[in-house]
């Protein structure tokens, strides 16, 4: 089967379009999250997504309709993580851990009450990008546009807060608003990325492209571009590779990202042996 033949399948076209957009979003947000040592927020929110999906499935809401339940719960939880770190004497990772445990335990209880794990819930655990529906593609395109507009509007404020929150505040940046925007955008992207790599592997899409970009970037803007490029390429190549080798797509995408990170690390070592 050649490349053109693969591209002629509607499910591949949907996977490529939605997958690339979601991966680019995660990769861009990942740069801010990694630099702010909030990398694992994706994991925490993914676990909340698991719990909320269990609620949606218990309410007989499937596929895109499940987003009606997941999105508000995950968005609120992301603000909850922020409040926990602000109002308690907890560091970000502890707050993420608490919310994460809450999400996964709620999901397990609900799945158990609802008669055990069904196929739909398992597809959210490990991702199934090839099963993405047209409706989900439309939602992905819409949310991609929303997130990109917000990212470009808040770019300088996000950079300032990521560099140093106190200095940002003294530059007149409303740091509370900027922090809320960052976690809300992350929450949106995590919910979208569920179908792509699944709850178990979601944080890799947020962390690995940013981690690779940090090895090579010579400015913040180039770091964002490297990260987005790796995220997008890993999904496109991952879909083709998994199709050709009959391997699970989500795991293939993650392994490709790991390979890119290894290459970036080696290139950095070659360019700067002192590191």
């Amino acid at each position: 089967m050649n490349l053109l033949e693969i591209l002629s399948y509607a499910f591949i076209q949907r996977a490529l379009l939605a997958g690339t957009l979601i991966a680019v979003l995660c990769s861009l947000l990942g740069v801010f999250l990694v630099l702010r040592r909030m990398s694992l927020i994706g994991d925490g929110l993914a676990h909340i997504t698991f719990g909320s999906t269990a609620i949606a499935l218990a309410m007989k809401l499937y596929s895109a309709s499940s987003l009606l339940v997941s999105l508000p719960i995950v968005l609120l939880s992301s603000l909850g993580i922020l409040k926990l770190t602000e109002k308690t004497r907890l560091s970000g990772d502890a707050a993420i851990g608490i919310v994460s445990a809450l999400g996964i335990s709620a999901g397990i209880i609900l799945a158990s009450v609802g008669g055990g794990y069904n196929v739909d819930l398992l597809s959210y655990l490990f991702g199934n990008i090839l099963a993405i529906t047209s409706e989900e593609v439309n939602i992905a395109v819409g949310l991609f546009c929303v997130v990109m507009v917000l990212l470009s509007l808040f770019y300088n404020e996000l950079l300032a807060v990521t560099f140093n929150e106190e200095l940002a505040r003294i530059s007149g940046v409303h740091t509370n608003i900027v922090n809320a925007v960052l976690v809300l955008l992350t929450a949106l992207s995590v919910v979208l990325a569920m179908k792509l790599v699944g709850i178990m592997l979601i944080s890799s899409l947020l962390i690995l492209p940013a981690a690779s970009a940090l090895q090579l970037a010579r400015s913040f803007r180039s770091c964002m571009m490297f990260s987005a490029l790796q995220g997008g390429c890993s999904v496109v190549l991952g879909i083709f590779l998994s199709f050709a080798t009959n391997l699970p797509t989500s795991a293939t995408v993650v392994m490709l990202n790991l390979a890119f990170f290894g290459c970036a690390f080696l290139v950095r070592r070659l360019l700067d042996p002192g590191v």
């Binding site: 300088n156 940002a168 530059s171 940046v173 913040f220």
Partner: peptide, 23 residues
């Protein structure tokens, strides 16, 4: 490993003179 250049860092000081969205 913070990837901001010197020019990008100094530019952030100008945000105090800007209104949202800061360009």
């Amino acid at each position: 490993v913070f990837p901001a250049t010197v020019a990008e860092t100094v530019g952030l000081g100008l945000l105090s003179l800007k209104r949202f969205p800061c360009r």
